[in-house]
Amino acid sequence: MPILPGSVAPKSLGESYLHVLHALMLRDMRTRFGASLWGYGVVVLWPCVHVFMLIAIYTFQKLAVPLGDDRALFFASGAVPVLVFQYISREVMKAVISNRPLTYYPQVKLFDVIFARILVEIVTGFLALLVVISVLLCIGTNPVPSDPFVAMCAYLSAIILGIGIGTINVAIIGFFPGWLIGYALLSIVLYISSGVMFLPSYMPDKIYYWMKFNPVLQLAEWMRSAYYPYAGLEIDYLYITMFGLTSITIGLLIVKHVVAKMSA
């Protein structure tokens, strides 16, 4: 990488890579909703608005919740892991589309663009989680789970699954650009069937059996089991973990072919 007059040369290739990664992350934060702090604030608050609109609708209609007596806690505990998964898996795919011209620079690789967006989405999701927790505290809801370790594992699993599906989306969109619309439609189906607005275990056994193959549904149940341990929710932890890790592996293997296609 050429060194401009008056600049300080990076001490190592690792430091140079960190500079590239930092620049890509800043570009993501500044370009998606305007080059300002308020613009990035919109990115953080967007999923929070989704959660609280859902809570408001069910509160005004005075609908009972399947577990407990707190509507806000029930919906937030199911929506947070699902939204974390959806935002990461979608935005990682969109990063390749919006930042593809940057890969023409020899210092920037496709994996750098993907990794930078993953880090941005993890930070954004965590900030959104802090906002949700703060609002729940303000309205008198206790957001602390009965089993914090289980809740943390569910949140991390949502990140892993989001990265895995997002990586596969990158590979697919490299060959079929129209998949951006296709995944948007699939996301709606996954969200509706994930159990954010209802408790899937109350469904008939034959239907619930097939619904359990949706790893997003199990993410919601995993998080809810941390808040409602008495509900007896059965989660296949190995299935969710292996689904996420396998998705990452498959996605990275296919991305190699996407890189070759972009370089051609």
Rank of each mutant, 00 (worst) to 15 (best):
R27H: 03
G166Y: 06
V43N: 07
Y239D: 00
V80M: 15
I240P: 00
I55T: 02
V80D: 10
T31F: 00
R71P: 07
Q107T: 03
H50F: 15
L37I: 01
F198E: 02
D147H: 05
I88H: 09
I248P: 09
M93H: 09
S146K: 08
M211R: 00
P229Q: 12
L186I: 09
K256E: 11
L190T: 15
S187H: 14
L219H: 10
V135I: 15
L37F: 08
A264R: 07
C153Q: 08
L45K: 07
V216A: 10
A151I: 09
A158N: 04
I235H: 00
T31R: 04
V120Q: 02
H257L: 13
A76F: 15
Q107E: 15
S7V: 02
G140I: 13
V120W: 07
Y209E: 01
T124C: 05
F176V: 15
I181L: 01
E121R: 08
L63D: 05
G244T: 07
V196R: 06
P200G: 03
G140Q: 08
I114S: 10
A260K: 01
L156K: 11
P66M: 14
A220Y: 05
H22N: 05
V255E: 12
H22K: 09
I122H: 00
F85L: 14
I57Y: 14
S247H: 03
M211V: 03
V196M: 04
P81C: 08
S36K: 06
I207L: 15
E121Y: 03
M197R: 09
H50R: 07
I118S: 05
P101I: 02
Y227L: 10
V255Q: 07
G125D: 01
S36G: 08
C153D: 01
W210K: 09
A184H: 11
L161N: 02
S201A: 01
L54T: 14
I122L: 01
L185T: 04
P2A: 15
P177S: 11
F126H: 04
I55D: 00
I165V: 15
F175A: 09
A226G: 07
I248N: 08
N99R: 08
S194A: 14
P215H: 10
I139A: 14
L130M: 12
K206V: 03
Y237W: 04
L217D: 03
V80F: 12
A158I: 08
G68F: 13
Y40L: 01
G178Y: 04
L24K: 02
S98R: 14
I159C: 12
V189G: 06
V258I: 12
L127H: 02
I254P: 11
S89M: 13
Y227V: 11
V43L: 01
L180S: 12
K261A: 14
G244D: 04
P66F: 13
L21Y: 02
D28K: 02
V43M: 02
G162A: 08
E121Q: 12
L253G: 06
W38T: 13
W38C: 06
L18H: 05
L102R: 12
P215V: 05
P47D: 11
K256I: 13
K94Y: 13
G68W: 13
F198N: 06
L217S: 09
A154I: 09
G232A: 06
I173M: 01
Y239C: 00
I114R: 07
L13S: 10
I159Y: 12
Y228G: 05
V20L: 06
G34R: 01
R30K: 08
F213L: 12
G125S: 14
S146M: 12
V96C: 03
K94G: 04
